[in-house]
């Protein structure tokens, strides 16, 4: 792995994160005084001023920013206005639950999307292809809240085989994971199919055929490593979206993860929590993109050696 390549990517990731953190600060301060929202309307101005001083809202904006930024570096996003605990602790309590959902979804959508996409490409225009692609279109065009509610109606209310919402047993995971995975698996399948179709028409596949490689070998040993390069991009996006993207689904299934914390905190204007979550989502997105870039280097030798590439 080219060190320079990795270093540049890492630097870019840091700059992106800094921009996001700053943006969050600016936007949230611009949208009004939190004390107006959090404290009752009929309290006296001295009490309001007391809280403003306690939360540091009376300081000049640049000082607030520096304090905020310095604290953010330590992972400190302040105290939750609502229940006086450090915001980061409240968020961390939720992260494992969202991660549980996210990772299960991630592996299910990979395990489903990649083989289906490959098969659709190999048996192009056959019923396998058509069936897979209809499934894919259905998967990512169906809104999560709608699919979630349909699933609850069917499995929880009518058939009574799965709990409608909540957290605890593996049965609780089935519907949220299915809801999330259909969308991602659909996108991955479509992407894999088009990447494979492109690769299968290349001259080197003819070379493999001429050598007498079996169909299975041609597909998985000669073609797929090439098709994996573009597929990694969409997979990376899904990975990054696992934390932020589950907001709707977590709410539909009352899953006690980061997504639900985010919606309730936004409703309460609990600034520290919102900031913390937005930064957390940004970190996952940026790390996912960084992973994608590094994976390119690992999968594609033309990227790996960077500088010493020769002209064709």
């Amino acid at each position: 792995m080219n060190l320079r390549y990795a270093a540049i990517k890492l630097l870019r990731a840091m700059i992106t994160l800094w921009l996001v953190v700053t943006f969050v600060f600016v936007v949230l301060r611009l949208t009004g005084d939190p004390t107006q929202q959090l404290l009752p309307d009929d309290i006296g101005p001295e009490i309001r001023d007391y809280y403003r001083a306690a939360w540091g809202l009376d300081r000049p904006l640049w000082e607030q920013y520096l304090r905020y930024f310095e604290a953010a570096l330590r992972g400190d996003f302040g105290i939750s206005f609502r229940n006086s605990q450090p915001a980061i602790d409240l968020i961390w309590q939720r992260v494992p639950k969202t991660l549980e959902l996210g990772l299960a979804t991630f592996f299910c959508s990979l395990a489903l999307g990649i083989p289906l996409g490959v098969l659709a490409a190999v048996w192009r225009d056959s019923w396998v292809d058509r069936l897979t692609m209809s499934f894919a279109v259905f998967g990512f065009s169906m809104p999560n809240f709608f699919l979630g509610i349909l699933l609850i109606l069917l499995f929880a209310l009518n058939l009574r085989v799965l709990p409608s919402s909540g957290y605890g047993t593996w049965q609780h995971m089935v519907m949220p994971v299915f809801t999330l995975a259909t969308a991602f698996a659909g996108a991955i399948a479509r992407f894999t199919r088009s990447a494979m179709l492109e690769v299968l028409s290349r001259d080197y596949m003819r070379t493999a055929e001429a050598e007498g490689a079996s169909r299975f070998r041609q597909v998985w040993w000669h073609a797929f490593p090439n098709a994996a390069i573009p597929v990694v991009t969409i997979v990376g996006f899904s990975l990054g979206g696992m934390i932020g993207g589950a907001v709707v689904t977590e709410n539909v299934f009352a899953w006690p993860g980061v997504g639900r914390l985010l919606t309730s905190s936004v409703a309460d204007r609990d600034l520290s929590i919102v900031q913390g979550i937005v930064v957390l989502v940004a970190i996952t997105m940026v790390s996912a993109n960084l992973l994608v870039d590094l994976a390119y280097g690992w999968l594609d030798p033309r990227v790996r050696v960077g500088g010493q590439e020769r002209s064709r």
């Binding site: 003819r206 001429a210 007498g212 490593p225």
Partner: peptide, 21 residues
């Protein structure tokens, strides 16, 4: 056929698999 014949195509750049040594 595969055992008995070998083929060299016009363009080696595209005939070789770019991600394999």
């Amino acid at each position: 056929r595969a055992r008995g014949m070998g083929m060299i195509s016009q363009n080696p750049m595209t005939g070789l698999n770019p991600v394999r040594t």
